[in-house]
Simulated scan of single mutants.
Amino acid sequence: MPKVNSAARVPGLAGFNALSAAEAEDGLLACCASRAFAHEVAARRPYRDLAGLAEAAEAAVRGLTWPDVQEALAAHPRIGEPPRDGGRAAPASVARTAEPPRYGGAAEAGGREASWSRREQSGVEAAGQAVLDGLAEGNRAYEERFGHVYLICATGMAAKEMLDRLRERLRNDETTERGVVRTELARITRLRVAKLLGEEA
């Protein structure tokens, strides 16, 4: 039977601080899927409190090179796009879990990220077909214009608001939009760091 690192099963800041560098980085990839981000935030441990970790995570996101931001964006699903299985189960390539944080590896981090994305985009679930069609069309236009997925911190937002913001952002030039993307990615990352530690409100 394989030996399991007990620290990897301990939620909370103390458990996170006690992880190996590789385990901490694996967990952080669920918060922001940039390897540079995960390496920097893990290397700054130990953290005294969640606020300090959240601030370090946000600073790391804002300091990423654009290719590193693109790496993180590649892990985010399109807003309004349903799971390939209709939402009944995870794709075979992604293991999702509702268990407390365990920081068990890159595959588990991917499972947490997918689960969190579904919850963050829950405002889409009640949307009418016209809004869903608008999001699909807007996503295509956005990706053609900017070359990456439309990213927004969707927690607590209705689908219509996500669509309105998408249409507004299509008017941005590339430099302005990159700044908006960094801000949204930083907001998402701060929220996910709390989830990672099991301290979500």
Rank of each mutant, 00 (worst) to 15 (best):
V4S: 05
N5T: 07
N5H: 13
A7Q: 14
A8E: 09
V10E: 12
F16N: 02
L19R: 00
L19W: 00
S20Q: 02
S20I: 06
A21E: 10
E23W: 06
E23L: 11
E23P: 00
A24T: 04
D26K: 03
G27R: 00
G27F: 03
A33G: 07
A36P: 04
A36N: 13
A38D: 09
H39V: 08
E40Q: 15
E40C: 09
E40G: 11
P46G: 12
P46F: 11
Y47F: 15
R48E: 15
D49S: 14
L50F: 10
A51R: 13
G52W: 10
A54P: 00
A54D: 11
A60D: 06
A60L: 02
L64M: 15
W66L: 01
D68Y: 09
Q70W: 07
Q70L: 15
E71F: 06
A72N: 01
A72M: 04
A75I: 03
A75G: 01
A75T: 02
G80P: 03
P82Q: 11
P82M: 14
P82L: 14
P83C: 12
G86K: 00
G87P: 02
R88C: 09
R88V: 12
A89G: 09
A89F: 05
A90T: 07
P91N: 06
A92G: 10
S93I: 06
A95Q: 10
T97W: 03
E99S: 12
P101V: 00
G105R: 05
A106N: 05
A106Y: 09
A107P: 03
E108S: 03
A109G: 12
R112K: 03
A114S: 08
R119M: 09
R119Q: 11
R119G: 13
E120F: 10
E120N: 10
Q121H: 08
Q121D: 10
G123A: 06
V124E: 08
E125C: 07
G128Q: 05
G128S: 01
Q129M: 05
Q129C: 01
Q129E: 13
A130T: 11
V131T: 13
L132K: 12
G134I: 02
L135M: 03
E137M: 03
Y142A: 08
F146V: 05
G147Q: 04
H148G: 08
V149G: 06
V149T: 14
I152F: 03
I152N: 00
C153W: 08
A154V: 02
G156K: 01
A158Y: 02
A158G: 08
A158T: 10
A158P: 06
K160E: 12
K160I: 10
M162K: 00
R165N: 07
R169Q: 02
D173G: 11
T175D: 12
V181R: 05
E184W: 08
L185I: 13
A186E: 05
R187E: 11
I188K: 01
I188G: 04
T189W: 07
V193S: 05
A194P: 05
K195D: 04
L197R: 02
E200A: 14
E200D: 14
A201H: 14
A201K: 14
